[in-house]
């Protein structure tokens, strides 16, 4: 799929039923500026809902707090997560009220703003048990026959760089963030996307050690460049 996707991108093709406004149009400087204003606290919640207070203007990760790196993530992915926080499909005590307070235009603008930021480098190299890291690497690259889990990289791209537009980047995300998401899927606290429920299905088959291992693995690997869509992101 990636190769086909690349070809399509080289051909200058982008589009699809979902998010036409986000997919087909080059980012307007005005939209980026409007998004920056939202990030700076221009949403309905004002400074209480300012993205930059946790995510910075670069959208870098904060390892200690477990805040994910959102800079350079696809606009479509970021927009979808904001939509889900707002609708309650994805729940988070901090993000849900902030996203709920955004207008549809603000949601789009701020998604585009963070999408056009350079991909932040990984901040922390995990000092972990090498055997555990190796276990995470194997799950990432080939999955587990015993547990019936496919490789993470099937969808999230080689070395976890993400596949534009809907599969998020895992490389360089804080281990605490990744592990928390997998645990939330495993317990059902975070619901999968209907009707596929892919991440829920996978997380339920992972042991606590599996979760710790893949989280540490993706946190520890260098962040490579991912193919990006034309239009919004260039």
């Amino acid at each position: 799929m990636r190769a086909a996707l690349l070809l399509a991108l080289l051909l200058g093709i982008a589009g699809g039923a979902a998010g036409e406004a986000l997919l087909g149009v080059p980012p307007q400087p005005g939209q980026v500026a409007a998004g920056r204003a939202v990030a700076a606290g221009g949403g309905q919640q004002g400074q209480a809902g300012a993205c930059f207070r946790c995510h910075g203007f670069a959208g870098a990760a904060q390892d200690a707090a477990g805040f994910p790196a959102i800079g350079g993530m696809s606009a479509e992915y970021l927009h979808e997560q904001l939509r889900r926080y707002a609708s309650g499909e994805r729940r988070n005590d901090i993000m849900s009220p902030i996203a709920s307070a955004l207008t549809p235009a603000q949601m789009r603008d701020v998604a585009v703003f963070y999408a056009v930021q350079p991909v932040p480098p990984a901040t922390g190299i995990a000092l972990a048990d090498p055997a555990l890291l190796q276990h995470g690497a194997i799950l990432s690259a080939s999955g587990s026959a015993e547990s019936g889990i496919q490789a993470c990289q099937n969808c999230h791209g080689p070395a976890g760089i993400g596949i534009w537009p809907f599969y998020p980047r895992l490389a360089g995300q804080p281990a605490a963030y990744l592990a928390a998401q997998l645990r939330a899927w495993k317990t059902g606290e975070r619901q999968g996307v209907e009707p596929w429920r892919s991440m829920q299905t996978i997380a339920q088959r992972m042991s606590d050690r599996d979760i710790e291992a893949v989280a540490l693995y993706f946190a520890s690997i260098p962040v490579g460049t991912a193919p990006r869509g034309v239009g919004v992101l260039q």
Partner: peptide
């Protein structure tokens, strides 16, 4: 099209429309 357990008790996961069925094995 969704997570499914068949009469033999085998579990299937949902297809993600990757476009590699014919002539390929399914990774999912």
């Amino acid at each position: 099209t969704r997570p499914y357990r068949n009469p033999y008790g085998c579990d299937m996961h949902a297809c993600n429309y990757c476009g590699f069925c014919e002539r390929f094995g399914c990774e999912h």
